[in-house]
Design a protein around this nucleic acid. Sequence first.
DNA 1: ATAATTTAGTTGCATGAGACACCTATCTAG
DNA 2: CTAGATAGGTGTCTCATGCAACTAAATTAT
Lengths: 189, 189
Amino acid sequence: MVTETRSTPALPITEDRVRPPEPLDGEHYENAEAILNQLTRFMRLSKRAATRFAATHGDGIEQAAYIILYVLVSEGPRRTTALAEAIHSDTSTVSRQAGALVRHGLVERQADPADGRACLLAATPRGVECFEAHRRARTAEMMQVLANWSDTDLRDGADLLDRLNGELERYETEIHSNTTTAPLKGGNR
Amino acid sequence: MVTETRSTPALPITEDRVRPPEPLDGEHYENAEAILNQLTRFMRLSKRAATRFAATHGDGIEQAAYIILYVLVSEGPRRTTALAEAIHSDTSTVSRQAGALVRHGLVERQADPADGRACLLAATPRGVECFEAHRRARTAEMMQVLANWSDTDLRDGADLLDRLNGELERYETEIHSNTTTAPLKGGNR
DNA sequence: ATAATTTAGTTGCATGAGACACCTATCTAG
DNA sequence: CTAGATAGGTGTCTCATGCAACTAAATTAT
């Protein structure tokens, strides 16, 4: 972390949220806008790509369930709540996705010995298998998409995205604590 | 129906799609996987962030409509089809989003003098206004998220994402021409 | 020990987004 | 002029996700 950027020209911070009184224009602003535009573009493209992939390799793992399986396989059994936190999602979503995985026989709900209310979600052997297959297919596809990228490019890209994700997570939790968990419901008008 | 029995443990890949006979393992593979994981993570986080933003600044522009307004404002009136192509979406989606914008008075449907079937979508003054306001708000938010990033970081990030998006677009159109537009419907099961 | 409260997870309902199929109006070839 | 192609719009489906309300279990207070 590089301190607080461009050193806020010596202005006292306003109350409430930090929200520095920056000029809002200038190079920094334009750069931020540029990256935002690329991110917006990426969101569309990636969603479409993911959907297409799921349609082609439609083998039962929903797009959204993959990440749950990912956590379960790589980190072992977890509770619903822990999963939700890990992937920054609502417990209800996790519950549903997990339910689908259970129906497909890829995940098991075990009783949590420590707490009767909770249950541990764990990947079944078949779940692990399925996940690995999926993972390989996904990566193979990705390698086609990034066929022209050097190893350095890939590493740099991964690093950059990692940083970006870090910021987003920080922001997410920051908001969460600051605004006392304001609901975010979709509702526009 | 999950898996057809995990398709042969370690056999050379079948024909069908191009699927180059690369080793699939090694550094390149791992790097591809790393970037893919970051992208997956990013997709979740960005979606959530976007939703939250929309909830906070709920002023009538839907998330998905923003990009349409973006094209319209920055490139002038466009047909539905052209818009759909520009944002890699279905015409039906564009039609609906545009309809919403029209209802909000941000976009106008003008008759295309050259073709009676078509109509030109154009941003109204209010649409431009609204777009600019939104754009500023979005960028301001982004600047908070990336408060710690230097200008160089931002530029590098934008460049990288630009490249990545280029690859995705290439891939998208490639598939489009190769498989003669295979439908991609969500349908799992 | 029993009541009150807090917590984990599930389910009901709603929203957003996107895609396909189908329909209508128009345009363009033959 | 009729037959096919095309541009847009609508109906309907699916996925993903969130909040609210509810149930059941655990914890705290009385």
